[in-house]
Amino acid sequence: MDETGKELVLALYDYQEKSPREVTMKKGDILTLLNSTNKDWWKVEVNDRQGFVPAAYVKKL
């Protein structure tokens, strides 16, 4: 969790967005987890953008 109590995830792999609903991340990025109710796609925030990334590409910290 960060200082505001939000849950964080670590990008395990690079991911290039394939639609406007997704976000690009690089391996090693720390992202804010917004929603993990879907087992396949998690909603995150990175670089002031919100979108989805494959759940298998990130790990909760």
Rank of each mutant, 00 (worst) to 15 (best):
M1N: 13
M1V: 14
D2K: 11
D2E: 13
D2W: 14
D2P: 14
D2H: 14
E3Y: 09
E3V: 14
E3Q: 14
E3A: 14
E3N: 14
E3H: 14
T4A: 13
T4V: 13
T4N: 13
T4C: 15
G5Y: 12
G5S: 13
G5I: 12
G5P: 15
K6F: 12
K6P: 13
K6D: 08
K6E: 08
E7K: 09
E7T: 14
E7D: 10
E7H: 11
E7F: 11
E7L: 11
L8R: 10
L8Y: 15
L8H: 09
L8Q: 09
L8N: 05
L8S: 07
V9M: 05
V9I: 07
V9S: 02
L10K: 07
L10G: 02
L10Y: 11
L10N: 03
A11L: 02
A11S: 05
L12Q: 04
L12T: 04
L12I: 10
L12A: 04
Y13R: 15
Y13H: 10
Y13T: 07
Y13V: 10
Y13W: 11
Y13F: 12
Y13E: 09
D14R: 03
D14H: 06
D14Y: 04
D14T: 06
D14F: 04
D14P: 05
D14C: 06
Y15R: 02
Y15G: 01
Y15D: 00
Y15I: 01
Y15C: 02
Y15P: 01
Q16P: 06
Q16D: 13
Q16N: 14
Q16M: 12
Q16E: 14
Q16G: 07
E17L: 07
E17R: 14
E17T: 08
K18L: 09
K18W: 04
K18P: 04
K18R: 14
K18I: 07
K18N: 10
S19C: 10
S19D: 10
S19A: 08
P20R: 08
P20H: 10
P20W: 09
P20F: 08
P20I: 09
R21V: 11
R21T: 13
R21G: 14
R21S: 13
R21Q: 12
E22F: 06
E22K: 04
E22G: 13
E22M: 05
E22Q: 11
V23W: 05
V23I: 15
V23G: 02
V23D: 00
T24V: 03
T24P: 05
T24F: 04
T24H: 04
M25N: 00
M25V: 08
M25D: 00
M25C: 06
M25S: 00
K26T: 08
K26M: 09
K26Q: 09
K26Y: 11
K26D: 03
K26V: 09
K26P: 00
K26F: 11
K26C: 11
K27F: 05
K27R: 11
K27I: 05
K27A: 12
K27L: 05
K27D: 02
K27G: 05
G28L: 02
G28S: 03
G28Q: 02
G28K: 02
D29Y: 06
D29K: 03
D29R: 03
D29F: 05
D29N: 07
D29V: 05
I30T: 06
I30E: 03
I30C: 06
I30L: 07
I30M: 06
I30N: 02
L31I: 07
L31V: 06
L31F: 07
L31D: 00
L31G: 11
L31Q: 00
L31T: 00
L31E: 00
T32Q: 11
T32S: 08
T32P: 15
T32K: 12
L33R: 01
L33G: 00
L33C: 07
L33A: 02
L34N: 02
L34S: 02
L34R: 04
L34Q: 03
N35H: 07
S36M: 09
S36T: 09
S36H: 09
S36I: 06
T37N: 12
T37E: 14
T37V: 09
T37Q: 11
T37C: 14
T37P: 03
T37H: 11
N38W: 07
N38S: 09
N38R: 08
K39V: 11
K39Y: 08
D40F: 15
D40S: 11
D40M: 14
D40P: 02
D40I: 15
D40G: 08
W41P: 00
W41C: 06
W41V: 02
W41G: 00
W41D: 01
W41T: 02
W41F: 06
W41M: 05
W42Q: 01
W42M: 03
W42F: 07
W42T: 03
W42Y: 07
W42E: 01
K43V: 14
K43D: 03
K43H: 10
K43P: 00
K43R: 10
V44N: 01
V44M: 02
E45C: 12
E45S: 10
E45V: 09
E45M: 12
V46T: 15
V46Q: 15
V46M: 15
V46D: 11
V46G: 14
V46P: 00
V46F: 15
V46A: 15
N47V: 11
N47K: 12
N47A: 12
N47G: 15
N47D: 14
N47T: 09
D48N: 14
D48M: 10
D48W: 07
R49E: 05
R49N: 05
R49I: 07
Q50N: 07
Q50T: 12
Q50C: 10
Q50H: 08
Q50W: 08
Q50G: 06
Q50R: 12
Q50F: 07
Q50D: 06
G51F: 09
G51E: 02
G51L: 04
G51M: 05
F52L: 08
F52P: 00
F52T: 03
V53G: 00
V53H: 00
V53Q: 00
V53W: 00
V53E: 01
P54G: 02
P54F: 03
P54Q: 02
P54T: 01
P54H: 02
P54S: 02
A55Y: 03
A55N: 02
A55H: 03
A55F: 03
A55R: 12
A56M: 12
A56F: 07
A56P: 08
A56C: 14
Y57M: 11
Y57T: 06
V58S: 01
V58T: 04
V58I: 08
V58A: 03
K59I: 15
K59V: 15
K59S: 09
K59W: 09
K60M: 10
K60N: 06
K60E: 05
L61V: 10
L61G: 03
L61Y: 08
L61H: 05
L61N: 03
